[in-house]
Write a protein that binds this DNA or RNA. Structure first.
Length: 309
DNA sequence: GGTGTCGCAATCCGACTATC
DNA sequence: GATAGTCGGATTGCGACACC
């Protein structure tokens, strides 16, 4: 069995800047909670690197013992049964093993296995699992990766013939969906990778390939069902005060769509450490701005370039 | 500067599984 | 069957950030 000596703990900690700072505090016999957490993170990371995802109870015990031996100030004075119960307590009396090291290991394993599980649920279309409802199912790619790359490169440099563009876009739809999900490109990035995605009909084609059954449902139910409900809600909230009599169903449908930003609170999301929290007014700018027939488009586009770039 | 919100990690706990 | 170990959900605490 591998054994961890107290000298190892010092060696492990000196391997990182944070570890060195903690070492300084430990030598001064004082450690604050945030340093204790960091210490546990460093040790567990080392433990998993050296002994795998599930080290034996003996290994964990050895690490905890080495820690207390090297730094007696970390001893749990309230625990008379062992010196390191605070850091690792083996399971007993039907109770699971516990302690900072054990709990950290558990949490790391949890995180490591979380994405793997959600991916495995994607092998078959999700029915009721939580993971399945959060991430939509993407089918398996039906053509080889080499073929996908060939099509992608061709699409980057050709715009004609149109039927070939459509065919190649169709063939690469699944690959594109996976790439977009994995890479998180912005609009410009997507435009560079898949310049034809913004050709009329291509997004609809992708949607149809990825969500064949759901694709027609939105159009089937929007006008007869959802538009009236949304308009009713918008009127109740005071967003619509004028009469809608005389408007065509299509106009009402568009009006209902434009009400969504005011009825659904904008989602807060993060890019790196920056949090984006858009106002309702800003969210409205992301919608197509419908203008009455006869609007001077040149003038409108000139103004729009400044007001909503 | 105070307050509210959010996301993440730590912690707790019951249920389950593997091993002897 | 008893026990140790694992798992996953719920709760709690904390730090970062935005807004007033």
């Amino acid at each position: 069995m591998d054994v961890i000596y107290c000298t190892d703990i010092r060696q492990i900690l000196t391997g990182s800047t944070e570890g060195k700072l903690i070492l300084g505090s430990l030598d001064g016999d004082v450690i604050i909670p945030s340093q204790r957490k960091c210490l546990v993170r460093i040790l567990v990371s080392h433990l998993m690197e050296k002994f795998g995802e599930s080290p034996t109870s003996e290994t964990k015990k050895a690490l905890a013992a080495a820690l207390i031996h090297g730094f007696p100030s970390l001893k749990d004075e309230s625990d008379t049964s062992s010196d390191f119960g605070y850091w690792f307590t083996p399971g007993r009396n039907r109770r699971p093993a516990t302690g900072f090291l054990e709990e950290r290991l558990r949490n790391v394993r949890k995180r490591m296995r979380k994405p793997a599980r959600s991916q495995s649920t994607q092998q078959t279309p999700p029915q009721s699992s939580e993971a399945g409802t959060r991430r939509t199912f993407i089918p398996e790619c039906t053509i080889s990766e080499e073929r996908v790359i060939q099509c992608k490169e061709w699409l980057k440099h050709n715009s004609q013939p149109l039927n070939q563009v459509e065919q190649y876009m169709q063939d690469t739809a699944v690959y594109r969906a996976k790439s977009l999900r994995e890479n998180g490109w912005d609009i410009e990035g997507i435009r560079q990778e898949f310049p034809h995605l913004f050709t009329p009909g291509m997004i609809a084609q992708d949607f149809h390939i990825l969500h064949r059954e759901a694709a027609p449902k939105l159009f089937e139910t929007w006008l007869p069902l959802f538009k009236d409900k949304i308009l009713h809600l918008a009127r109740r909230e005071g967003n619509i005060i004028s009469s809608l009599d005389g408007l065509t169903p299509d106009c009402l449908g568009e009006l209902a769509l434009s009400q969504l930003p005011t009825l659904l609170p904008p989602t807060v999301y993060k890019v790196g450490r920056k949090v984006f929290r858009y106002t309702i007014e800003k969210s409205k700018l992301a919608f197509i701005d419908h203008k009455p027939v006869g609007t001077n488009l040149v003038e409108y586009l000139h103004e729009a370039k400044v007001s909503r770039p």
